[in-house]
Nucleic acid binder design. Structure first.
Length: 645
DNA sequence: GTAGGGTTAG
């Protein structure tokens, strides 16, 4: 057999389709005395079989005596772009300790990239120190990735310092600074850097610069600035509206709620890839237009644009919002048939089933998922919470701890929510304290809202008030609303009015506050005041966005607004509601029973209030759940069992 | 002979 040189072995590596083939080529390179050829190892690490081949290359590296910086650089690069960037950092450590080498300027951009992916703040700062000591800090490649690292980690002042100290800025370096501001929601600062770049005139802004600017507007939801940039793109930009720029514009408008603009940009694009479609689909989904989102998905398929995992996630969350379980199941089947599955899709599916009240189906999907993110845990926990199964939520939370997953502030929000719904006051307090003390999570205003709700529902109004007074952040309308809700539930008009004052001060122009106040007076039987508040609403021309309930029967989603009479069977529906309302009154005896008797009573009482408010054209929002969410869940359960058996 | 940074969609 003819001895093969490195060139032909290289060509073979590119045609490899399995790890075994790769190993054969490696064996051949050993026979040919080329096993330590750096280039071959690099190619193996980065071959099409990535990341399997990367693993193999690592095993070779470990057995290699005195591996060169070249090999380390290739491996650090490969790992910094892999799913496990922390391995890049241990490779770097290994190089420093085992080889006693500091690397070269090719090493560090990837080390910073890995630090950025891992949000390894301390490590990054340490490496920054090393770089300064060796004197590599004049390398612009290295410094732009260092700048990017600080931007990703939210250390924008440090990023700015790197930016200011570096003189020979190229366009990528400028863009990294703009992107840094963009990530941190600082659109004005991003714009300022862009203007400075144009003013200095040493480099011309490229597509990346404009993309970073648009992204700055998207993150900070600065529609006004976004429109200006759109105008600038149309007038000044010579590179034209690329697919990327178009996608960014569609996303900007969609995230800002301007779907008509988003659609106009979308329709004006001659070339659309899946990213563009996904931006519009998730935009519709995000803004509550799930029907339109699904229709777009079908159009996308019609135009032969291949849906990806983002498409599926967007569609599933659209279905979850409207409770369109059948449509959701159809999307699921589509995804399964097309081999689209990952932890994000799984999480969307858990959310879909939980929001549709099929918590068992949600759990089934959850249990089948090998890879779970914090969001996956949070979704199932909040599913249990809103389905009133606090016990399961608590049990699962313990399991989460055991699995090694690290709870975040949303996890605690879900578990507090679960406790609040079940009236588990002591347990809730315990979680709140442990969150602060053991997990070092600073409570946000949402956590306080949950705690006030928890205490308030249990009738501990004084304690709820004291918690509000102890807060180190400004209470928002949710916090005051929860106290207010509790006051109306327990008939404490005086404290209720005190809370209402704060609500009006915070949201003077919000009609929702009026509805809350009217609800409190209604619950206390003060119908004279209800009338006065409603009149005040009319006088001020306030109109609360109506809470909307949807149920899916067969393949049709029925939508109900408060006091809605447009459904063809509305007369029958209302008579059932009245009947139910009466029956529930006999069960609970009173509208103002404190939520201490566990899940069942809580559920019955919650529905009674919702049913009452439904028929009165009022609705009491629930802590943490949107109007339409709690409204829908409650109504759905009752309409399903009683009216559509 | 071999290599490098930033940029959209959840």
């Amino acid at each position: 057999m003819k001895t093969q040189g490195p060139k032909s072995l290289l060509a073979l590596i590119e045609t490899c389709t399995s790890l075994n083939q790769l190993k054969q080529i490696h064996a051949k390179s050993i026979i040919s005395g080329l096993s330590y050829n750096h280039f071959i190892l690099t190619q193996i690490a980065n071959s099409f079989l990535f990341p399997q081949s990367l693993n193999y290359a690592t095993r070779i590296l470990v057995q290699t005596q005195e591996p060169s910086i070249f090999i380390y650089n290739s491996m650090i690069k490969a790992y910094s772009q892999s799913e496990t960037p922390f391995v890049a950092l241990s490779m770097y450590n290994n190089m420093r300790v085992r080889e006693n080498a500091v690397g070269d300027q090719f090493t560090y951009p990837f080390v910073f990239k890995a630090c950025a992916s891992e949000l390894a703040m301390e490590k990054g700062r340490e490496v920054h120190g090393v770089v300064v000591r060796i004197g590599f800090d004049s390398d612009r490649f290295l410094c732009s990735s260092l700048l990017n690292f600080y931007g990703v980690c939210g250390k924008i002042e440090s990023a700015r310092q790197v930016f200011d100290e570096f003189k020979a800025k190229d366009v990528v370096f400028w863009n990294a600074m703009i992107m840094g501001y963009a990530r941190n929601g600082m659109a004005l600062e991003a714009c300022e850097v862009f203007r400075e770049m144009v003013k200095v005139g040493e480099v011309a802004p490229n597509e990346g610069a404009v993309l970073a600017l648009i992204s700055a507007c998207t993150v900070s939801k600065n529609l006004k600035l976004g429109r200006e940039i759109h105008g600038y793109v149309r007038k000044e930009v010579t590179f034209g509206l690329s697919v990327k720029l178009g996608a960014a514009m569609v996303d900007l408008y969609a995230k800002c709620g301007c779907l008509d603009y988003a659609k106009r940009v979308f329709e004006g694009m001659p070339e659309k890839n899946s990213v563009v479609w996904n931006s519009l689909i998730s935009g519709y989904s995000l803004n509550g237009f799930s029907r339109e989102a699904i229709d777009l998905f079908k159009d996308m398929c019609f135009w032969d644009v291949k849906p990806d995992r983002y498409t599926i996630s967007g569609c599933l969350s659209a279905c979850a919002q409207t409770g369109a379980i059948n449509l959701g199941n159809w999307v699921r089947k589509f995804a399964e048939k097309n081999g689209l599955w990952d932890e994000f899709i799984g999480t969307s599916l858990v959310d879909l089933y939980a929001k549709c009240g099929s918590i068992e189906a949600a759990r089934e999907v959850f249990d089948q998922m090998d890879k779970k993110t914090v969001a996956t845990w949070n979704t199932i926990l909040s599913g249990y919470a809103s389905n009133g199964q606090a016990g399961s939520a608590i049990e699962l939370f313990d399991e989460m701890r055991k699995s090694g997953a690290i709870p975040d502030s949303i996890t605690f929000l879900s578990i507090l929510h679960a406790c609040a719904h079940a009236g588990l006051v002591d347990k809730g307090k315990q979680y709140f304290d442990s969150m602060v003390k053991n997990d070092k999570i600073t409570p946000k205003v949402e956590h306080y809202g949950c705690m006030v709700d928890l205490l308030g529902r249990a009738g501990l109004l004084k304690e709820a008030r004291e918690l509000i007074e102890r807060m180190d952040i400004e209470p928002n309308v949710i916090v005051w609303g929860s106290l207010f809700n509790a006051c109306s539930m327990h008939g404490d008009i005086e404290m209720g009015e005190w809370a209402a004052d704060h609500i009006f001060n915070l949201e003077a122009m919000d009609g929702g506050s009026y509805v809350l106040l009217a609800n409190m007076y209604a619950a206390a039987g003060r119908f004279d005041r209800v009338k006065a508040v409603r009149q005040a609403m009319v006088d001020a021309s306030f109109c609360k966005l109506p809470g909307c309930s949807m149920i899916e029967i067969g393949d049709v989603v029925h939508e109900f607004l408060v006091a809605d009479k447009t459904h063809p069977k509305s007369e029958e529906i209302y008579s059932v509601l009245d009947e139910l309302s009466d029956k529930l009154k006999t069960v609970t005896g009173s509208m103002r029973l404190p939520a201490l008797a566990g899940e069942h009573l809580e559920k019955v009482q919650g529905n009674l209030i919702n049913l009452r408010s439904f028929s009165h054209g009022l609705h009491i929002p629930d802590c943490g759940a949107t109007d339409s969410e709690s409204h829908r869940n409650d109504l759905e359960i009752y309409l399903k069992v009683s009216f559509f058996p």
